[in-house]
């Protein structure tokens, strides 16, 4: 039972990472009725998604051992990418909150800039 819960969490995190990737793309932002992101925010979002996926790989290997962990991760990647596509195709509104949250990446980006300029 615990394992199922853990796999669900893995699945959710990979799902979020793929949603982040998808929501950096213009057609999907339009479908969720959110404004386009700046290049920098897109970069950060993709970096974050990559980080999430790698960390799930590491966690899956840690939980299930090398072979199983890798296979599990690979299968979860495909499955959650499928579900992201299906949701974006059928009910893009479900991902709108996440898409709106992604604007935060924009703000943090500005903050970094401001901090950077202040330091200079």
């Amino acid at each position: 039972m615990v394992s199922i819960l853990i796999y669900m969490i893995f699945y959710l995190i990979i799902f979020i990472s793929f949603s982040l990737l998808a929501l950096t793309q213009f057609p999907h932002r339009r479908a969720t009725k959110t404004s386009e992101l700046s290049q920098n925010a897109i970069f950060i979002a993709r970096l974050l998604a990559g980080f999430l996926q790698t960390s799930i790989l590491i966690m899956a290997v840690w939980h299930d051992g090398g072979g199983f962990g890798f296979l599990l991760w690979a299968c979860l990647l495909s499955l959650s990418a499928f579900s992201v596509s299906l949701i974006l195709g059928g009910r893009p509104n479900l991902l709108a909150p996440l898409a709106r949250q992604m604007v935060l990446l924009e703000y943090s980006d500005v903050n970094v800039h401001l901090n950077g300029s202040r330091n200079r």
Binding site: F18, L21, A22, Q25, H28, A81, S85, L88, G89, G90
Partner: peptide, 9 residues
């Protein structure tokens, strides 16, 4: 890549 998640029912 640009149509990676594209599904238009």
């Amino acid at each position: 890549f640009s149509e990676f998640f594209t599904f238009r029912p």
